[in-house]
Deep mutational scan, measured.
Amino acid sequence: RHRTTFTSLQLEELEKVFQKTHYPDVYVREQLALRTELTEARVQVWFQNRRAKWRK
């Protein structure tokens, strides 16, 4: 699998949602996936990684 490189616009969208909730439900993730043109799975993994980073 290749590494997904996020654009600054995608990161902006993702971070905006992360500020509101660290655990977006499937509906929120789907909406975010559509807005960022990423798959829902990529969005889910981004949140997992972002939460790990936040905990440190």
Rank of each mutant, 00 (worst) to 15 (best):
V28I: 09
R1Y: 10
H2A: 08
Q10M: 03
E13A: 08
F18W: 12
Q19N: 09
R3M: 15
R3K: 15
S8V: 11
F18N: 00
S8A: 15
R29Q: 06
Y27P: 06
V28E: 12
F18V: 04
V17M: 09
V28W: 05
V43Y: 03
V45C: 10
Y23N: 12
F6P: 06
V43F: 06
Q31Y: 05
R55I: 08
E15D: 03
H22K: 14
L9P: 10
A41K: 07
Q31P: 03
Q48K: 13
V45R: 11
E40Q: 08
D25A: 05
E40P: 13
Q48G: 05
R50S: 04
V45D: 15
Q19Y: 04
R51S: 01
H2K: 15
W46C: 01
T5L: 07
Q44S: 14
V17G: 03
A52W: 07
V26K: 15
K16Y: 05
R1K: 14
T39C: 03
T7M: 04
R1S: 10
R3P: 12
T21I: 04
P24M: 01
T4L: 10
E12R: 10
Q48N: 10
E30D: 06
R50T: 05
Q48D: 07
H2Q: 12
V26Y: 10
L34E: 13
T21H: 10
Q10W: 00
R29A: 09
E13D: 06
F6H: 03
E15Q: 03
R35G: 04
V45W: 13
R29S: 06
T21Y: 04
K20H: 09
W54R: 07
S8P: 14
L14K: 00
T4E: 13
A52V: 11
T39K: 05
Y23H: 12
E15I: 01
F6N: 03
A33I: 00
Q19M: 08
K56A: 11
E40N: 05
D25E: 07
H2F: 08
T21C: 08
V45H: 14
T36Q: 02
H22A: 09
T5M: 15
L14D: 00
F47R: 01
P24H: 00
Q31I: 03
R55L: 13
R3G: 14
K20S: 09
L9G: 12
R55H: 03
R29F: 04
K53Y: 09
